[in-house]
Write a protein that binds this DNA or RNA. Structure first.
Lengths: 192, 192
DNA sequence: ACCCAATGAGACATCAATGTCTCATTCGAT
DNA sequence: ATCGAATGAGACATTGATGTCTCATTGGGT
């Protein structure tokens, strides 16, 4: 009586389950394991066989997110060319991971600093280094610290992801809106 | 054997309980009712007598946050003077409510759009109107929509609040960092 | 000095999510 | 065709938070 959409037995695709989980948890962060399982099209028992518990699932999502973010950094080649153009490329490459990133950032704030994944530090360091490089090359202003620019970067990515999801911003404008605000600000500049 | 810090019986100060709850939930959004009660220095039963349940508590916090934000708007006189200066004043006035605002925004994202508090629409409208005014007066660029600028405003406020709480940004720099990034962006402008 | 409203502490039932287990089923590999 | 590994469905116990209740205590108001 059941109907299988595609591939029903033998070896559940772990990555595909993670993507389904990310898609759901991104929209509803409080979704239960049962809901995640249904969203992934598998049984709850099977979900537990692959991920020991909710924590394990979230950590696996963390791994996935970190991997994709590092890949985005690599693709954006953030160490090459003018820093502002590198930021633009980075935002563009990060777009697909933005909702997942937003979820993970919120989730991380709940963790009381006990055991953080090292990946975050590496990513923070890469973003921070990009802004620092921009400052040293005279492209970015020096009165805003790299730490704050990094924080703002994540914040705007998250805001952009939510705005797109809620339909307040068109998906095609995601990169432009974020980059223009992050680099140029809201004030109308005289020149340009 | 017990020691009362101040006022131990008769008529718990509702506002003070809300402030304690806000202070705790801001740091740990998943705190239980029991933890909230302890943080407020009252019994769990008493907490339940004043707020029917967790939902009621969060809604009361929403009311409090909305009231304080509207008060901040009033104090900032966002309809007077140049729009960019009005934004600067607004950020300054909003600073104290920032952590609570951050918590409520996250909490609201979980609600599946069922019953939203009207206050948010009013606040959104005020912020949005400020940015629109700035555009009409030629102070703000017109290629970034007021809706996005509003979203970014909230996002940066939240990022700033977390950055301060985690010690990545000094509390005294809160207003400056947010305003400068929001209005001027990270790019170093030629003039100025 | 008395009374009563409000509190704190704790017992209790309830509920939802979790994690574990069993068992029949189904397909892939041999 | 057969075997076996992995699955789905569901039962079950457990845990943690919630909401309700009782009762002794306290202190302000009269």
């Amino acid at each position: 009586m059941s109907h299988w959409v595609y591939g029903c037995l033998m070896s559940v695709d772990r990555t595909q389950v993670l993507r389904a989980a990310a898609a759901l948890l991104t929209r509803k962060a409080t979704a239960t394991m049962d809901e995640v399982a249904r969203a992934a099209g598998i049984g709850r028992a099977t979900l537990h066989r692959h991920f020991a518990g909710r924590d394990a699932l979230v950590r696996a999502l963390e791994e996935l997110g970190i991997q994709e973010l590092e890949a985005a950094h690599d693709r954006a080649r953030t160490q090459e060319g003018p820093a502002d153009e590198a930021v633009r490329r980075l935002v563009g490459e990060v777009e697909d991971v933005a909702p997942l990133l937003s979820f993970l950032v919120t989730e991380n704030q709940l963790f009381e600093g006990d055991q953080q994944n090292d990946g975050w530090e590496r990513l923070d360091a890469r973003v921070s280094a990009l802004f620092r490089r921009g400052q040293e090359e005279g492209v970015f202003r020096i009165d805003l610290t790299p730490a704050w620019l990094t924080e703002a970067f994540y914040g705007l990515i998250g805001s952009g992801a939510w705005a797109v999801q809620d339909g307040r911003v068109a998906a095609k404008d995601f990169q432009y809106m974020i980059v223009e605000l992050l680099l140029g600000g809201a004030r109308r500049s005289v020149e340009k």
